[in-house]
Design a protein around this nucleic acid. Structure first.
Lengths: 264, 264
DNA sequence: GGAATAGTGTCTGTGAGACAGTATAGG
DNA sequence: CCTATACTGTCTCACAGACACTATTCC
């Protein structure tokens, strides 16, 4: 069958829902009437470390715990539009100019203790910009070092957000292998070293500067030279680049061979 | 904010919903109360061609048109569980023994003309087995050659299922590059030529038999020899293999270099 | 033997990685 | 001079692709 309704029409299960408190979901309905949310994993690089934007919850459940920013999908609003709106509300940034991709839908019926809420997670890659991070509501938003959040002794995130964050990280690491999105972490113009620091922060590994430089500059459409130089604090000035037009890397920059090496 | 309800609690928008017919969704609610469906792209290879399982819709909308199998997520049922259940209902197969992965969530508010239905699509890879394909309801299910479905002159699938199918195909092609899922198309034991036909059908390109054989047998954990041979209709008998334990291919088998070549 | 498929040998080109060497800045 | 960073040269190894060649079967 394909979306063919065999049993009660929508109105019926609604009437069954009435009378249940939000803490005690009905279990006799066949079709779930539920709320749909988007949660956004916003990654950026600050001071050489990968950061994620987290908010401190102001009410139960998980009161006072850290969580991913997000909110409900509104009526008549597409999933992508909801993600763009939440991104705007949380960071003030225009998501159309950032990398924003759907990550995964999370639908465990008990992932939210209040009621059934299915969440579609998005991954956003942002450059290190002076973001307002003006929580439109009273919640505080903070950039947090990803490594700290995922440390075993650290308190876990609210809901299943630790899993979402882990999935987002794995996706980001993979994207850096096969696409040019790493440039989306950089403020233009950027140096090859800036771009290398992105790979090192996301992969948690150190890369050979010489080989990396050759690889990046020789891959068509990855970066385009501006001709200008950036005077370094120390050492030879570095050439400046902008993002190229290519979306995918061929051949890819596989991290498998790099895995295991430590960063630093 | 993170799933914090600023406005009406769940009960309230439910009362607003009552009185609306399913064909006229409310537009004044801030949060969407909606139905959640799963649609499944079940791929298999029959007679050397990539097939997808499609059903003919028995009622409007899109009456009589082809669509992906799917159905509503039930109350208390996870997304994965719903996909497994639908798969079982449509094919009689146990999805736990097949490759089943979430593909993407489709949430355009107008993707279903009746009411707002968000669908989470799944990709399944199945070997060419004698499947009952017993539609538990009256819908007919048919294996259809993918190439035929996507041909420009062909009638498009119902809803946004053409897009879902295209996304699933792209995902499957990519999976064959980086993972060992191609073996999931094969009935064990299988020959290297069987596996090569999988790649050729999914990629729509022909591969060099010698190089492919070497690549597959030398990649650790891709396939394991059974020691037995399969007598061929003509030619030298081929060695038989089973699936190995590796999930990922390193180095991957990139199709980019192959792209453009025609399947012969 | 001929035809067909299975599988190996071998050559070439490309690219990754290691690492030496050169370039250009400040101190 | 030194140091630090940027970048290039070069060597080696691994692998993809092309394709010749051998192996094994049925006719």
């Amino acid at each position: 069958m394909s979306r063919v309704q065999k049993h009660p029409p929508p109105q019926l299960h609604i009437s069954l829902t009435i009378g249940y408190s939000e803490c005690m979901p009905a279990i006799t309905r066949e079709y779930a009437s539920l709320n749909l949310a988007v949660d956004i994993v916003i990654l950026t690089i600050r001071h050489g470390d990968l950061h994620v934007l987290l908010v401190k919850r102001g009410k139960p459940p998980f009161h006072g715990q850290l969580a991913l920013p997000g909110g409900f999908v509104r009526d008549g609003e597409s999933l992508d539009a909801a993600a763009l709106r939440e991104l705007k509300e949380e960071t003030g940034l225009d998501g159309r100019r950032l990398h924003l991709e759907q990550l995964h839908a999370y639908g465990d019926p008990r992932r939210d203790p209040r009621s059934r809420i299915v969440s579609v997670a998005y991954l956003t890659i942002a450059p290190d910009l002076p973001m307002p991070v003006a929580g439109t509501d009273a919640t505080e938003a903070h950039w947090t070092v990803v490594e700290t959040v995922l440390a075993p002794r650290r308190a876990r995130l609210a809901f299943d957000h630790s899993k979402i964050l882990n999935d987002a990280l794995e996706r980001a690491r993979e994207r850096l292998e096969y696409t040019t999105v790493a440039t989306r972490f950089c403020v233009e113009p950027f140096t090859i070293a800036d771009l290398r620091h992105v790979y090192e922060a996301v992969w948690g590994a150190s890369l050979d500067p010489g080989n990396f430089s050759r690889k990046v500059t020789r891959t068509e459409g990855f970066v385009v030279p501006t001709g200008a130089l950036r005077p370094a604090e120390t050492g030879r000035p570095a050439a400046l680049f902008r993002r190229g037009t290519a979306a995918n890397l061929y051949p890819p920059m596989l991290r498998t061979a790099v895995a295991g090496r430590d960063k630093g």
